[in-house]
Computed example of a mutant assay.
Amino acid sequence: MPMRARNQLVVEHLHIVGAATAYVASRLTQVSRDDLASAGAFALVRAAEKFDATLGVPFGAFARGRVNWALKDELRSMDWAPRDIRVRARETTKVRQTLSAALGRTPTVAEIAAAMGVDTGSVREGLADAERMLLSLDAPDAPEIVWTGYLPEEQAIASERDEFLRRAVDALPERKREIIRAIYFDDRSVKELADEFGVSHAAVSQQRAEAVRMLRDALDRHYADAPLGETAPTSRSSASALEAYFERLASGGQRFTRAILSHAVGA
């Protein structure tokens, strides 16, 4: 993407970083708003560099995901507590929550200690740690703190599209699937993959381009307004290979089976 076009994308979508930073900072104490904003801005620039419009995903949605993950990583880096302290704080908090639900009131330190089989001093330390620290965002019970930027109805549409695209990637032929995941999900370069696979740079680029075309065909066929069978495929694969791809995609989820099979028959 030309530098000018990339910069324009960044400028037009800076509000994503601002809104996400404000959302997180308003809900968590002991975090640096400046550090969050810097991490989010860097992620936005990287998103503009990696963005591929041919995948059919709006840049706003693509960038929003990158910014959210960047803020999560930044929050993890701010977590001062060693793992054993995080575990103690999380376990103590969980027991307190369980007892609160069972008793209908906040349990005493002695009650928590008795339930955990530890002394009251350990409980007090665990509760104090929980108050001071940011619990790991990887914890199963951790709250979702990152702003999505969607209205409820927009979130539903975006979630369905993301789910469909994930299934479409999963249904790709093995090598094409590996290349798409590596480049777009793991930020690996074409050169890295060429060295790993023992093939030329051009070979990986061709596989990537064809995989993108197949994904585009899947998205176009599923979301097309035109009558079934009237959407011309962009893929250069044979009709039988494309039909096999659509069938794999259909078998990946009942919500999409009828639409994709119908399109595959018309392919």
Rank of each mutant, 00 (worst) to 15 (best):
R248Q: 11
E131V: 00
I183W: 01
M214L: 12
D162N: 11
S200T: 15
P107M: 08
L135V: 14
T234G: 11
A267F: 13
R175A: 01
D79F: 01
A89K: 03
K50G: 05
T148E: 00
L9M: 10
R90N: 03
S200V: 04
A113W: 07
Y223M: 05
T234L: 13
A171Q: 09
A5I: 03
W147D: 03
R96G: 00
V31I: 09
Y23I: 02
A47Q: 06
G252H: 06
A218V: 07
E163G: 14
N7F: 04
R66K: 13
S100R: 15
D162H: 14
D195F: 04
T29A: 12
E196G: 08
A114V: 00
D138I: 02
V199E: 11
L249T: 05
G198M: 13
E178Q: 14
D225Y: 07
M133I: 11
S26Y: 01
S122Q: 14
R90K: 00
V11D: 12
V45Y: 09
S100H: 02
R46F: 00
R33A: 12
F62R: 08
A81S: 11
A130N: 05
A128T: 13
A171N: 08
M116D: 07
Q206D: 13
Q30A: 12
L193W: 06
S238D: 08
L151C: 03
E91K: 06
G229M: 09
S237F: 11
Y23A: 04
I183L: 12
A110K: 15
E49R: 08
T106R: 13
I179E: 04
D138K: 06
E178P: 04
H222T: 03
A203L: 10
A259D: 10
A110Q: 15
K191G: 10
L55R: 15
E111T: 05
R90M: 04
L165P: 03
A267Y: 14
R76G: 07
L242R: 10
A89E: 02
P58R: 10
P82S: 10
Y223W: 15
E74T: 14
A5C: 05
L127F: 07
S238N: 01
K94S: 14
E192A: 13
W80V: 02
G18Y: 09
H201L: 14
A101K: 15
T21L: 00
V146R: 09
A81Y: 08
